[in-house]
Computed example of a mutant assay.
Amino acid sequence: MPKDQGLMDKILDIGIHIGLVILVIFALYPMLYVAFASISDAGQLIAHKGLLYRPLGFSIESYKSVFKNPGILIGYRNTLFIVIVGVTINLLMTSMGAYVLSRKNVMWNQAFIFIIVFTMFFNGGLIPIYLTVKNVGLINTLWATIIPFAITTFNLIIMRTAFMSVPDSLEESAKMDGANHFTILFKIIIPLSMPVIAVMVLYYAVEKWNGWFYASIFIKDRELFPLQLTLREILLANQTDSMSAGASAGDQFQIGETIKYATIMVATIPILCVYPFVQKYFVKGVMVGALKG
Rank of each mutant, 00 (worst) to 15 (best):
L51K: 06
K220V: 04
Y275V: 15
V196C: 05
I184V: 05
I190K: 01
P128A: 02
N123W: 08
A249Y: 14
Q252F: 04
A205W: 02
L229G: 04
P191G: 04
I115N: 10
L192I: 03
I146C: 07
Y214K: 05
V66Q: 14
L92N: 01
Q228Y: 06
D13W: 15
F58W: 12
Y130D: 00
M120P: 15
P226F: 14
G15V: 11
L23I: 15
P70L: 00
F36H: 04
S38G: 01
K104N: 12
I189W: 00
L229R: 04
I84W: 04
I16V: 05
Y281K: 12
K64H: 03
A162T: 09
I190E: 01
A47H: 07
I74C: 06
I151M: 09
G124H: 07
G6E: 12
K134S: 12
L231G: 11
L80I: 15
H48T: 00
A249N: 15
Q279C: 07
E223L: 01
G256F: 00
N180R: 02
V21S: 10
A174I: 07
F112S: 09
S102I: 13
G15P: 11
S242R: 12
F122S: 03
T145M: 13
A35K: 01
I269C: 06
Q254D: 13
A42S: 14
I190W: 01
Y99V: 14
I147A: 08
V34H: 08
Q252H: 01
L28M: 11
P226G: 03
L23N: 14
